[in-house]
């Protein structure tokens, strides 16, 4: 693991004393990781694969695929709303923590928004890793207390006749919002539709892009 470490930590090089330093938190991570590897509790290759998967392969793209398919395939949409875990598994996206997925459909009357008030439970298999703001205390607290104000800050105006429902994720239950299909997308295929689906629209704080914005 030596050369790998150096690439990541070269910026701590001290030019005056020609001595490298790692930050305290880097030392703690490396201490824990190397002990776990020595004890056979984690496999370093598996760690690297997991990081690569979440950083580059998952992202919100899996979720965008799910949403685009629901927009273009009524049968899939019905299955998705009935049993989201099973429908999402049809596309090959399987939860790693054994959590159940629930898909929440936005309509003209109801708007759904997802939060985890305790920490940051998040549907990783479909959305990748959570954004920094999702993990922040202000979002976690305010999403419940004043969801309309938070939505407005995200640029999403919700009129008074629309009900806003806030869903609190748990370790066992994760939510994915199915946003409304944007107008002007008639005739677009699934791949083109998927490019309109943003991460924020699947958390429920934003809208999908319009054709031409993608």
């Amino acid at each position: 693991m030596g050369t790998h470490d150096h690439d990541h930590h070269g910026h701590h090089h001290d030019h005056d004393h020609d001595e490298q330093r790692w930050s305290e938190v880097e030392l703690r991570v490396k201490a824990l990781e190397s002990l776990l590897v020595d004890k056979g509790l984690v496999d370093p290759a598996a760690l690297d694969l997991l990081i690569e998967t979440y950083e580059t392969k998952v992202g919100p793209r899996n979720g965008a695929h799910v949403v685009a398919k629901a927009w273009s395939d009524p049968g899939f949409k019905a299955r998705l709303l009935e049993n989201a875990s099973a429908a999402i598994a049809e596309l090959g996206y399987i939860g790693r923590q054994g959590e159940d997925m629930v898909v929440l459909e936005n309509t003209d009357r109801v708007r759904n928004m997802v939060v985890c008030t305790l920490c940051s439970c998040y549907p990783w298999p479909v959305l990748g890793l959570p954004p920094v703001w999702y993990k922040s205390a202000p979002y976690r607290a305010r999403a419940v207390r004043e969801p309309r104000a938070v939505l407005a800050e995200f640029g999403t105006a919700v009129t008074e006749d629309v009900e806003v429902r806030v869903w609190d994720s748990t370790a066992e239950l994760r939510y994915l919002v199915l946003p409304q299909r944007p107008p002007g997308t008639e005739g677009m295929d699934e791949a083109a539709l998927a490019r309109l689906v943003t991460r924020d629209s699947m958390i429920g704080v934003g809208e999908p892009l319009r054709p031409g914005e993608a």
Binding site: H8, V25, E26, V29, K30, L32, E33, L36, V42, L47, D48, L50, I51, Y54, E55, G59, P60, G128, L129, P130, P131, V132, W133, S136, P138, Y139, R142, V150, E153, T198, R199
Partner: peptide, 23 residues
């Protein structure tokens, strides 16, 4: 000011964060 935002960028800011996550 209340809600730090990102722009769909990498959610690990430093390699150690990814390592801690993966462990």
């Amino acid at each position: 000011p209340a809600i730090p935002r990102d722009a769909d960028g990498p959610v690990f800011r430093e390699p150690w964060e990814a390592a801690a996550f993966a462990m």
